[in-house]
Design a protein around this nucleic acid. Sequence first.
DNA 1: CGCATTTCCTGGTAGC
DNA 2: TGCTACCAGGAAATGC
Length: 267
Amino acid sequence: LAPWLTGRTVVSASLVDAVPGPKYAGLERAVGQRVREVTRRGKFLLLPLQREGRESGDELVIHLGMTGVLSHRAPGAHLRVRLGLDGSEPSALYFSDVRRFGRFMVVRSDRYDGLPTLRALGPDALSPAFTPELLRAALARSGAPVKAALLSQRPVAGVGNIYADEVLWRARVHPLRPARRLTRHETIALHGAIHEVLTAAVEAQGTTLYDYRTVAGEVGAYRERLSVYDHAGEPCPRCGTPIVKLVVAQRGTHACPSCQRPPRRRG
DNA sequence: CGCATTTCCTGGTAGC
DNA sequence: TGCTACCAGGAAATGC
């Protein structure tokens, strides 16, 4: 997105087949503003806006949710937002979103109203600020299962359900282990696994299970590299024990019961 | 405040 | 074939 959108001015913003509301708050404020840069914190895309050459304090915040797709070409269905842009083709950004979990809103960058997770977001998983020491300190504060802690985006930003399972498997940590009980060694392994898995996934252009497409319309290839997610019943790539599926933090969760020692017997 | 639970939403599919 | 019930999950809202 960055090379295409940076410096462009929004000339129109319209909701299509979407009910105005908090998920599309302030959208009309984008009109007449210029995209200063395209940046990202965790799963939130952040596009600070300028009006007449100076920062306006407004930021376009986009979250794809489960099924959001950004494209420079009009989607066949489920279009929610169309942003018209000045300059050469392609001159529109389309946001489609089958299940409507995504967000496409303009907010004050110093307040992030209606976005409590963004306000309290941990360091981005791929930024230098994300260190083993910081992860250890953040996990020490949480009594929740380590997978729930990861999904909260507080210890680190950018790990969702699929990558949480992959990362915990790689670090040999069971998803139900209380976050604060991880050893120093496990925390270091977890930090390394987060960095490695996300780096490889970005390189593969993401994981497409069903809907995800890149801006250019390509599927992500990381699905073929998943070790445990969506592999229930199949042998663990490390030890051959069948992968089990359980529920943690109300989410489908996959783990090797042998490599990832459970904290204690549970339901 | 922290953690758990519920809610939003639609397409795909299992089961009858 | 056609119907219902259920499942997938990011993060906000609500409950305790």
